[in-house]
Amino acid sequence: MSSASQQPTVVLIGPPGSGKSTIGLLLADRLGLSFRDTDTDVEAVAGKPVSDVFVEDGEARFRELEAVAVQAALEGHDGVLSLGGGAVLHGPTQELLAGHRVVYLRVGLDQAVKRVGLASARPLLVLNPRSQLRKLMEERRPVYERLAVTTVETDDREPADIVAEIAATL
């Protein structure tokens, strides 16, 4: 099979703190698949952490790199794929996600704050992190819900239970 015909077994979406990386790694392990995170792909191309791309190059440049990373991963990765929280805001990315098994990891604000931390290095949460996170979650929730084939609640749950629920839907 050529890499052009590969597609992810499952694509995880959700806001910061929803557990995309943690759940993605555990799910890939459980299914015997590889794990890929588009934020890691962006860092590899940029040669620096995502937070530095935002600060030094701006959010627009980050979103350009992210869109390319997402397209490449959707076309050439056959394992578990985790998208950055804001990747779904890009119209062409939304179109590319059609037909994929997309799982929205839903998390409440309080849990997201606990997981992300208020002293976070996440660039979009620099000023008043709790308020920024709330705003971003509210803005993105309809997009996550529309794109998802499955929604999984993550609040007050062990990662292994979340992974078992996702695996049961595949």
Rank of each mutant, 00 (worst) to 15 (best):
D41F: 00
A73Q: 09
P142K: 11
V10Q: 02
T93E: 00
P142W: 10
D37T: 10
L65V: 08
P8C: 07
L81V: 09
S120P: 04
E145C: 05
A72H: 13
N128K: 14
L136W: 08
R157Q: 15
G85H: 07
R106H: 14
V68P: 00
H77A: 12
R141F: 12
L81I: 11
D110C: 06
E56I: 04
L27Y: 04
D37W: 09
A28M: 04
G17P: 07
S18I: 07
G91Q: 14
V55S: 15
Q6D: 10
L12I: 09
Y104M: 00
V42S: 03
E138N: 12
A119I: 05
L124D: 13
L74P: 06
R140F: 09
G85Y: 05
P8G: 08
R134M: 06
V70R: 09
L89G: 11
D110G: 10
S82Q: 06
I13Y: 04
R157D: 02
P16M: 15
Y104L: 08
E59H: 07
V163C: 03
L26D: 02
L65Q: 09
A168G: 13
T38D: 04
R141V: 04
E56S: 13
L124P: 02
L133P: 03
E158R: 15
L118K: 12
L89R: 14
L118N: 11
G108A: 04
V163K: 04
L133Y: 09
P142V: 10
K135M: 11
R61T: 11
E75W: 07
E158V: 13
M137H: 05
T9N: 02
S2W: 06
F62T: 01
G99F: 06
I13C: 01
A44Y: 03
R146F: 02
S18A: 15
D52G: 00
A148Y: 10
E59L: 03
L97W: 06
G85L: 03
R63P: 00
Q111R: 13
S131L: 14
E165S: 15
V42H: 06
K114A: 15
A168Q: 14
R30T: 14
P49C: 07
V149S: 14
T38K: 08
D41W: 01
L125P: 08
S3Q: 12
I166G: 09
S2G: 14
S82M: 04
N128V: 02
V163N: 03
E153G: 10
R63S: 00
M137P: 05
L81T: 11
R30E: 15
K20T: 04
V113I: 15
E66W: 07
Q111C: 07
F62C: 00
D78H: 11
R134S: 12
K20D: 01
A112V: 08
A60S: 11
S2C: 05
A44S: 15
V149E: 14
A112L: 06
Q94N: 03
E138H: 11
D37V: 10
E153V: 10
G58K: 00
T9M: 11
R63K: 10
V88A: 02
T151N: 02
L33R: 15
A112R: 07
S21Y: 01
T151H: 03
